[in-house]
Design a protein around this nucleic acid. Structure first.
Lengths: 208, 208, 208, 208
DNA sequence: AATGAATGAGCCTTCATTCAT
DNA sequence: GATGAATGAAGGCTCATTCAT
């Protein structure tokens, strides 16, 4: 028996493979067989380790990086306008990076289009805190005159702009095949969204 | 046998049913059996009339209402700012109305999350023209100083805000179960997006 | 299209095969694959024609011969003692004949040992009427002095003796390999049960 | 490590659990996992200790109580008629008591409906001796005029009546949900079977 | 000696598709 | 031209068993 149990290794390989496959094919489209194949495990391994395909999805989801992003932002010693810009930049990097970490986002996007048992957990543990965080940040910028419904819409405007680049990626790829989400492009996008949004927010804060 | 053959009627019923089912379940989740059941046709009818499930999807997609929306907007005798507001309002009604007509949008949203052979056609016939239309409208507002890349991002900011309400509906429903997309709510949303965006655009037009 | 649809033929072949396999292996032990193999049909045929394995069992069960047996007995112009003898004889022939018809009995026996969703139907449609029929016949013999509980036990004594030969067949076969349930043997068994039971009944009728 | 090794304790717990599960679910329906779970042992324990599920069944079967019942009855200083009554009463208690001890009977009943490799052992070690014992007892009652075949049928009549209450339990439960096999009910049943049978035997003894 | 992990065959069911009519 | 029936591949899952430790 090594320091890390053999079982633990298989579990991790299964989780990694599951994130890949779920993000590529969605929950319904993903097959246990393909996940096990990529993890180099037997078909029965998913049942053994996670009980079922649903259980595997539940465990495959974790939102550490999203949480860290919010914490780092909250700690930043800067005015709310700057912090919003930082948040948008970090969020866009997370959304568009081709890294492994962003598979969580792809799974989330899948779940939105075709809700499965996993969506409730995602909403509870990832999206609701994110919305709350962003709403608080926006509140700092627009002040207290703006009503709660309108405040939520401001947060939606920001999140909508950000997630557009992610979930419309298949379309944008077809419209502009030359487009690459390299670091420079992501920075440019983030800057655009921040500028665009800040002026929208400022105006709403004044007229509310 | 009437002037329009029974065959033609079956085809139409299949297309109508297919739009329903595809929009509810996505391409992958939709089953030929359910489509045929709703159309009151035989299971073999899809293969017979459209060759395959893929062929049915291709034929089920049409974007008349989206085209009409753009045409009507282009004909409106008003300044570009007002036309943008009108476009956003009409677009949101199309996206969020529970009417049959909007099933096209739901199918499109599905395809984004899980591109199938149908996406190419959708991009070509619906999304590319829509992007072009919106880009021209935004150009009228921001003027010629803004570069093409930034102009596109402005269009994306508007489309992202609009489509957010549609594709995040499962999430928003969970976060705010009391939310209903009635006519009044849709108008409020459209007004928010228009105000938010116009000030973003104005600013970018000045500083570019 | 022949006079009898091809579908009908497949259905019947499936039902015949199902009765065989269910009676040999029990509901749980029977596999849809084996049933379809014997019926010369595809694995999916059971789902197509009967919805599920449960549905197949429900349709495979029918108790025509048991009902006819009771009707014929009730019509016989004879004293109840003679009719009891006739019933036992007919019942034993049905239980022990190696014919196709008796597969119903084997399925019933299986269900007793390992109740499945089919048992409720069996009890309702076959066993309850049989118990009622036999109770009425016994009532005619023992008279009104015997209580209901004791009357039921009399019926159980008769049914228990009869079914013993059926459900203990695997044991008796091992204990007496030379035993064959030919017509002569069945008649002898039936006579024994009738004689044995009539004197038990007569006694209970007198002393009650 | 105590005098009795931990291994021995696990073996015993496995056997106890196996008797429970086999009697509840039948050989086929029982799962090795469930047996090991109840025994607090590893899934591999069955293979390790007994080689296979079949081996476990073979070892789980023992018929001490049945043998004791016969011995006690043979020692009783009473006439054969009374001894038959005692036997029936003891046998019915063994068959119907919800106690652990009767699990052997339930396993036997299962094996009759669905003979597995265990049936040969059961017949050899439990049923054959029981049949012989009962045949000798019946012989004492009916005398020497009755032939061997008829004598066997007398024993079958008694065993059939007794086992009916056991193996038809699922049916009787559905027909008479209020029925409970408490001690009083068992005594009443045993008395009925004894009375019913004694008069059948007496008659056959006279007329043979 | 005893175990947790892993195996692969097999289960019922669902699916898009094809075929004979 | 159009259909009901049939197909076979593949789905998730459970099982008794085996293997490395």
């Amino acid at each position: 028996m090594s320091i890390v149990g053999a079982s633990e290794q298989t579990r991790e390989r299964l989780l990694t493979a599951a994130r890949e496959v779920f993000s590529e094919c969605g929950f319904q489209g993903a097959t246990v067989r393909e996940i096990c194949r990529r993890a180099g495990a037997n078909v029965a391994a998913v049942s053994y380790h996670f009980g079922s395909k649903d259980g595997l999805l539940a465990e495959a989801l974790h939102f550490e990086s999203l949480r860290l992003l919010q914490e780092a932002n909250a700690c930043a010693a800067a005015c709310p306008e700057v912090r919003l810009g930082l948040f948008i930049r970090d969020f866009m990097h997370m959304l568009l990076d081709e890294n492994n970490a962003s598979s969580q986002c792809r799974i989330m996007a899948r779940e939105l289009a075709d809700p499965s048992p996993g969506l409730d957990k995602i909403v509870r543990e990832a999206i609701a805190p994110l919305h709350d965080f962003l709403a608080r940040l926006v509140r700092e910028i627009v002040g207290d005159k703006v009503g709660d419904a309108e405040l939520r819409r401001c947060a939606y405007s920001i999140l909508g702009q950000c997630s557009f680049y992610h979930h419309s990626h298949p379309v944008l790829q077809r419209l502009h095949p030359e487009l690459r989400y390299d670091s420079k492009e992501i920075e440019a996008i983030a800057k655009h969204i921040a500028d665009f949004s800040l002026h929208g927010l400022k105006y709403l804060g004044k007229t509310a």
